[in-house]
Nucleic acid binder design. Structure first.
Lengths: 195, 195
DNA sequence: GTCTATAGTACGATAGAC
DNA sequence: GTCTATCGTACTATAGAC
């Protein structure tokens, strides 16, 4: 116990990632120093480079893993009618975002701090998520249960609307998460149905 | 002409602000140095401090002026029915955002880089904008032309949806700005009306 | 109003000891 | 695997000359 130096690979690795995720989300990638991350973890700055080749790779790995998680989640969408699947997406998106605030925040704030090749990778993953949402809208449109003038715009509109929840929702606030999900589903449902 | 040093207060001041706005929007406040701004303007770094007390004040002034402009715009909303006013807001919001991309971007990305007191000021101005939008929803609700389960959530949902346009809209792309405004108004209209 | 020069600090990353 | 020490660089902001 309490030794100052030793081998802690299984513990330190995840701690570095957790600290970086939290600090990047709070202050922004450019504003956070490697020394600051190290202090949070409880090691010296040099020790971080056992776990990441450099600061850029640390950011990219966090964003990449986040998108993998998001995509695995939406791939598990149950079968059902277009309406049922769209409601599932609304709830999944809000629920996931509220339980992974830091990852969500970084993934849409720090794209510009990725080097071009890394940015391409993350953008492509994000695009896959958008396509999964749009596929449900297209299906509903073809089946005649949705009336959507432009499924691409509707996709972007729905995602932006749902992302907005993270900017104001506070646990223990005026509305429960379930109530928020219901209200948003109500608005989305009406927006994609005929007038 | 071509003198290296001289008095250019009327020219340099605005140039500093324009350069800072553009660079902060592109790379983020924390990632941009005063030297970088100076290089863009064509002066030495020290000369910037004639126009701003420090980097923080430069950011705050840009954000503050942006919000003043936004609020002056929405204060000029014409009279009309709730539906007419909401349509006006949709078009104003999209149009303003697309013609002031950098200011919009900074104002919602750089809040966390403001010192606490400055942040309070900007947050209060943003809140005034939200309140102006909500007032229209409340009016329509009271007049029975809107059916909205929660006007505050609907306000946040509408604003988030409209903000999303800036993330994907490209001039000369698939859709004209007017077409985008129509489609978004169509979705908003349906979202706030009864099913 | 702008310049040059600089004080004082912090940064990312690496080398070598343990 | 982590430490200490450090290289080379960059930063914000200020002082004083012009």
């Amino acid at each position: 116990m309490a030794r100052k130096a030793g081998s802690h690979a299984e513990i330190t690795g995840p701690k570095v990632r957790e600290a970086a995720l939290r600090l990047f989300a709070q202050y922004g990638f450019a504003a956070v120093s490697m020394r600051q991350i190290a202090r949070e973890v409880g090691v010296q700055a040099g020790a971080l480079y056992t776990y990441t080749t450099d600061k850029q790779a640390l950011l990219f790995d966090l964003m990449h893993d986040h998108m993998g998680d998001v995509l695995a989640g939406i791939a598990a969408m149950p079968d059902g009618s277009p309406g049922e699947r769209l409601e599932w997406i609304v709830r999944y998106h809000i629920g996931y975002n509220l339980t992974h605030k830091d990852g969500v925040f970084i993934n849409y704030m720090e794209l510009r701090n990725l080097e071009p090749e890394n940015r391409k990778v993350i953008s492509a993953l994000r695009r896959r998520y958008e396509d999964a949402v749009e596929a449900v809208l297209v299906d509903g449109q073809e089946k005649g249960v949705f009336q959507i003038p432009d499924t691409r715009l509707a996709t972007m509109a729905v995602i932006a609307m749902l992302n907005g929840v993270n900017t104001w929702y506070r646990e223990g606030g005026r509305l429960s998460q379930d109530r928020v999900e219901r209200i948003y589903w109500n608005m989305v449902r009406r927006a994609v149905k005929g007038a």
